[in-house]
Design a protein around this nucleic acid. Structure first.
Length: 555
RNA sequence: GCGCCAGUAGCUCAGCUGGAUAGAGCAACGGACUUCUAAUCCGUAGGUCGCAGGUUCGAGUCCUGCCUGGCGUGCCA
């Protein structure tokens, strides 16, 4: 709807310039049309007149007058257009105009709100990417919910989206995993070994040790230590990864691709990455190490890729990995990282630039840490003591819907207090149920209608004039905003905007429900209200689907 | 020290990339079920948008400087 108005404004301006009623000859690229906070200011308002006032050397209200003269009379969609305040132009649309929105929703169903500005572009969203050295914890859950919702959102904006999980299965933390399991194996067999502090402390290591012994037998320990560690690294890594996969699947997250760091090595990609930067002259040797000249691309210091001891750094893998990502043809690459890695953004962007890509083609979304509480009291997690709260535990306790909603209800880059007691409370305190309840209630209305032999009204059979309650008009207008919310959220990479919208939509519906009956008035009214309510249901379901939250038919 | 992020109602947070009178949800108090689901609704309250300047028709939003908190700042991952 906004876009329609913008287009009309552009056309009107063009006519003004043609006729000479306006002289600056410029059509502002970014005409702002928005829904005013105050309904008295119209359904939409624009600031063009104020923007043009300076160039026209005329008072904004004067400019507005000229534009309006060119706009009205040619279009049937306005019931009123007025100038207000310092020079805003306020538009009031006709009721028929809004009725058309409902038809659109019924027609488009599951696609209502979907955008096409991403069409033809391929985007990859890489998220979670936790090392397979232990189970996912609550913080990974937030990253998972955010990445998954963002991917769904971008898909709804027309992008071709791939969800990817990068497996750090090549670093020395994997060695540590193998070593940790080996030591636990020895302990299980009665050997008195001290378990070092830099090994993984969690109870799951003991479980893995037990499984390894059961599967491979005690002869495992007869291998040379290095060999035993290698075997146990593989064993533990694949077990843990399988667990991660299951946890994520139960959390409603599926990846299109699991990308192993090890395969980067096996295919020589790491070396290729280093060579590439060397050939381009972006890498140099100093102090027996190989450095990437990231300062030439805006970083504040150069970064080591190949250490003097011959080992590569984590960053070297990342350069190769991102080089390969772009070689796979993505127009946009989105990485979702824990906020504690924010210091890596400049060097990663520098690498992307050095690799010959637009630095904006890499977007890093930061996800802040989750502060876990139980009844207001911190439920501390510490990897060192091994007493962390896993995603699995939280999911099992509070349910995936509530869990995902909590994660997605705030900007990802702001810290989140996650209170287990609040999250699992099935009450008004819990917004996710409030929203789902609105959906379930509508389903209930439809069941009631069906009992009375009233089916869902078809498009074109409705007399919209009976939808004349203020609540009905407000609801319709709010539904019309959904496509813009999707677009704005998609452009900003901010799925949390959808939760705010859902909250408001549910509030409006519940209020309407409590004041008015859908089924029970005369046939014409019942039919029209059913139609409206179907639209609300569709929009709630669509928004929830983007967030990966279910839309239950009864509760 | 430098860098990034944050600071908005008692608490947790929105605020549509600069718009008109800054909004929700909790928490508090008082009301509403003979009804399509009370997991609901209706009413009452709360503010120096961290502080000080600046940019302009207009600033919670942009710029500068301070204050406070978190994180980062390795030839660690």
């Amino acid at each position: 709807m906004k876009d329609v108005l913008k287009q009309l404004l552009r056309e009107a301006l063009a006519r003004c310039y043609e006729s000479g009623s306006l002289v600056s000859g410029e059509i502002p690229v970014d005409i702002l049309v928005e829904v005013p906070a105050n309904p008295g200011h119209g359904d939409f308002a624009t600031n063009v007149a104020m923007i043009l006032a300076k160039k026209e050397k005329a008072p904004p209200r004067k400019v507005a007058e000229v534009i309006i003269r060119e706009l009205t009379g040619k279009e049937e969609i306005f019931s009123r257009v007025e100038i207000a305040g310092p020079g805003f132009v306020n538009f009031f649309l006709t009721a028929e105009c809004w009725a058309r929105v409902l038809d659109e929703i019924i027609e488009q169903q599951k696609c209502f709100g979907w955008q096409d500005f991403g069409a033809g572009k391929r985007v990859q969203v890489e998220f979670v990417s936790a090392n397979p050295t232990g189970p996912l914890h609550i913080g990974h859950g937030r990253g998972a919910a955010t990445g998954d919702a963002l991917a769904a959102l971008l898909a709804a904006c027309g992008y071709e989206v791939q969800r990817e999980y990068y497996i750090n299965d090549a670093g020395n933390q994997m060695q540590t995993l193998g070593r940790s399991i080996l030591l636990r194996c020895r302990q299980l067999l009665g050997e008195a070994v001290t378990f070092p502090g830099d090994c993984y402390q969690g109870e799951y290591i003991r479980d893995l040790a037990r499984q390894a012994l059961a599967e491979k037998g005690e002869q495992l320990l007869h291998h040379p230590e290095e060999e035993a560690v290698r075997i146990l690294t593989d064993f533990g890594g694949s077990r843990i990864l399988a667990g991660i996969t299951t946890d994520l699947a139960d959390f409603g997250v599926r990846f299109d691709n699991w990308y192993s760091e090890r395969t980067l090595w096996e295919r020589g990609e790491i070396q290729k990455g280093l060579d590439y930067l060397r050939e381009k002259g972006f890498a140099y040797e100093k102090d027996e190490a190989l450095w990437f000249a990231s300062t030439r691309f805006g970083d504040d210091k150069d970064r080591v890729m190949l250490r003097s001891n011959g080992m590569t750094t984590y960053f070297a893998s990342d350069v190769a990995y991102h080089k390969e990502k772009f070689e796979r043809g993505f127009d946009l690459v989105i990485d979702i990282w824990g906020a504690d890695h924010h210091g890596y953004i400049p060097r990663m962007k520098a690498a992307v630039a050095a690799l010959g890509h637009d630095r904006e083609a890499l977007q890093v979304i930061l996800v802040q840490l989750v502060n876990l509480l139980r009844g207001g009291v911190p439920a501390a997690m510490s990897t060192r003591s091994g007493e962390f709260v896993t995603l699995r535990e939280v999911m099992d306790e509070v349910g995936t819907d509530a869990c995902r909603y909590y994660f997605l209800s705030r900007h990802s880059d702001s810290k989140l207090d996650f209170d287990l007691e609040l999250a699992k409370e099935q009450s008004a305190d819990n917004p996710v149920y409030y929203i789902q309840y609105a959906h379930a209630r509508i389903c209930s209305i439809q069941r009631k209608a069906a009992e009375e032999g009233i089916g869902l009204p078809a498009r074109g059979t409705i007399d919209f004039s009976v939808l004349d309650l203020p609540e009905e008009l407000t609801l319709t207008k709010f539904l019309a905003q959904f496509p813009e919310v999707v677009a704005a959220a998609g452009r900003a990479f901010e799925p949390h905007r959808l939760t705010a919208y859902l909250q408001e939509l549910a509030t409006q519906f519940h209020a309407y429900y409590n004041r008015h009956r859908v089924v029970g008035e005369d046939a014409k009214t019942t039919s029209a209200r059913l139609y409206l309510v179907n639209c609300i249901q569709t929009v709630i379901a669509n928004a929830l689907s983007l967030l990966g939250i279910s839309a239950p038919e009864r509760m």
